[in-house]
Amino acid sequence: MEKHLRIELIIERMAHKRACRVLEAGGMTGYTVVPAMAGYGNSKRWSRDTDLSASGDMVVIISIGDEAKVRPVLDQIGDLLGAHIGVVTVTEVEVLRPGRF
């Protein structure tokens, strides 16, 4: 088992392609996008069925990589979150097959 960093980025759906491009450009070998159902933030509840534009929907993007790749990616994600609605967390995880990251 080897230690890696796991990025969990909750971001508005409209900006998720920008986040995915940042991850790809940063050399992350993979990521998964998961739709979020509902939540609360900035004194406001939201849910994915509120409006037809779906512009208020949020997604969760999960990506795992070694620290050398993750740190520069986080700088870019910081810039992205300077404009878009979202939250990013990084946790240390153990992976079974380090060669895949």
């Binding site: 900006a15 392609k17 920008r18 986040a19 995915c20 491009r21 940042v22 450009a25 870019q76 994600i77 810039d79 992205l80 300077g82 404009a83 878009h84």
Partner: peptide
């Protein structure tokens, strides 16, 4: 508005 494009913009 912003001076430079947001990261990941295409």
């Amino acid at each position: 508005g912003r001076e430079k494009p947001v990261a990941g913009s295409e």
